[in-house]
C-alpha cells in the first residue's frame, strides 16, 4: 500500500476529473471541447517527452517537433499506401501500408526513436548553445526533407484516408478517442515516473548537475543521455502518431521550428523536471492560445510579453506556483 499523501490524492482527483470530462462537457452542452481536450492531451504527451530530456537531463532540445513529425508521417504514409493499395517498398521484400494501429503506431515510435538515436549520437557530443542549435539544425533538415517529399504531398501535406483501427474501437468517436489518448497519457506519465525514479533517472539528473563527477564514478553519461534522448524522441513520435489520427492530416508545418519552441514553452510554463508540469503547461498554453486568438487578431502582442513575464517571474512553472500556493512544494 503506498502512503496516502496530498500528492497521490491530487493525482487521483486529477485522473477522476479527466475520466469524468466527456460526460461533464456533454452535460453542460459543450461536447465539442472533448476534441480540444484530446488535442491538449496529445501535446501533453509530447511535452512530457521533452521534459525527460529538458527538465531531467538538462538537454535543451530545440528540435522535438521533428520527432512528432516523423511519428505523424509514419502513420500518414502507411495509411496512404493501405488506402490506394500501393507498396511502400518494392523488391525482394514487398511492404505495403496499413491502417492497423497495432502495427502503425509501434512503427511510428520505432521510426522516431531511430531518428532521435542518430540525432542524439551526433548532437550529444556538443553542449550548451551548440546543443540547442544542432538539434534545431537537424530538425530543419527533417523539415525540408518532408517538404521535398513530393510523393507524400510535399508542403501541402498528406490526408489520412481513415483513422487507424484498434481492437474494434471506433476511433472516429470523439469520446472513445479521448479515453484512448488519456489512457496513453497516463501510461506515459507512469512510465516516465518510474524511469526517473530508477537509477537511470538519477544518473541522468546527476549528469545534468555534474557530468564530470558522474563520469568519474564510472557512469558512461553519454550513453545514458543518448538512451534518454532516444526514449524521449520515441514518446514524441507516439504523440505524433496520435496527432495524425486526430487531425487526419500530416504536413511539414508540424515540424516547423516554432513548434519546437512552443513545446519548450509548454514544459517551462508548467514546470520543468516535474512530468506533471508539462501537462499543466500544455493545457494552459493551448487554452490560452485558443482564448486569446478568439479575443483579438493581434493576440501575439499579448502572448509574447506574457511569455517573458513567465520566464522572469515564474520560471519554476505554474506547477511550482500551485505547489507554493498549497504549501506542498516537493521539489
Amino acid at each position: 500500500m503506498p502512503k496516502i499523501t496530498p500528492g497521490t490524492l491530487g493525482a487521483v482527483a486529477a485522473v477522476a476529473l479527466l475520466l469524468a470530462l466527456p460526460p461533464i462537457l456533454d452535460l453542460v452542452g459543450a461536447p465539442f471541447y472533448v476534441d480540444v481536450a484530446t488535442r491538449i492531451a496529445i501535446f501533453a504527451i509530447a511535452a512530457v517527452a521533452l521534459d525527460l530530456v529538458l527538465g531531467y537531463g538538462g538537454m535543451v532540445s530545440f528540435g522535438h517537433a521533428a520527432f512528432i513529425g516523423v511519428g505523424a508521417y509514419t502513420v500518414g504514409i502507411l495509411s496512404t499506401h493501405a488506402s490506394n493499395g500501393t507498396l511502400l517498398f518494392d523488391g525482394a521484400l514487398p511492404i505495403g501500408g496499413t491502417h492497423s494501429a497495432l502495427i502503425a503506431w509501434p512503427l511510428a515510435v520505432l521510426a522516431s526513436a531511430l531518428v532521435a538515436f542518430f540525432i542524439g549520437l551526433v548532437s550529444l557530443r556538443t553542449r550548451g548553445v551548440y546543443f540547442i542549435m544542432i538539434t534545431l539544425a537537424f530538425a530543419q533538415m527533417i523539415y525540408f526533407f518532408f517538404v521535398s517529399l513530393e510523393t507524400y504531398g510535399g508542403d501541402d501535406g498528406l490526408s489520412l484516408w481513415e483513422r487507424s483501427s484498434l481492437l474494434g474501437l471506433d476511433l472516429y468517436d470523439s469520446t472513445v478517442f479521448y479515453y484512448l489518448v488519456i489512457f496513453i497519457l497516463i501510461a506515459v506519465l507512469v512510465f516516465c515516473r518510474r524511469l526517473v525514479g530508477a537509477r537511470f533517472g538519477r544518473v541522468i539528473v546527476g549528469a545534468r548537475e555534474n557530468e564530470r563527477r558522474m563520469n568519474a564514478i564510472g557512469f558512461p553519461t553519454y550513453r545514458y543521455k543518448l538512451v534518454c534522448f532516444t526514449i524521449s524522441g520515441a514518446i514524441a513520435g507516439l504523440a505524433g502518431a496520435l496527432l495524425a489520427n486526430q487531425t487526419e492530416f500530416v504536413s511539414p508545418s508540424l515540424l516547423h521550428w516554432t513548434r519546437s519552441g512552443e513545446l519548450i514553452v509548454m514544459v517551462v510554463l508548467g514546470g520543468m523536471g516535474t512530468l506533471l508540469g508539462p501537462v499543466v503547461g500544455a493545457i494552459f498554453f493551448l487554452l490560452l492560445e485558443d482564448v486569446l486568438s478568439e479575443l483579438t487578431q493581434h493576440w501575439m502582442i499579448i502572448f509574447g510579453p506574457l511569455l517573458i513575464l513567465v520566464v522572469l517571474f515564474a520560471n519554476r512553472g505554474l506547477l511550482g506556483l500551485l505547489r507554493r500556493g498549497t504549501g506542498n512544494d516537493t521539489r
Binding site: 465539442f32 487526419e248 492530416f249 504536413s251
Partner: peptide, 10 residues
C-alpha cells in the same frame, strides 16, 4: 493545418 482542423471542428 491542425489548428485549421480544430477551428473547423469547433
Amino acid at each position: 493545418p491542425d489548428v485549421g482542423r480544430q477551428l473547423a471542428d469547433r
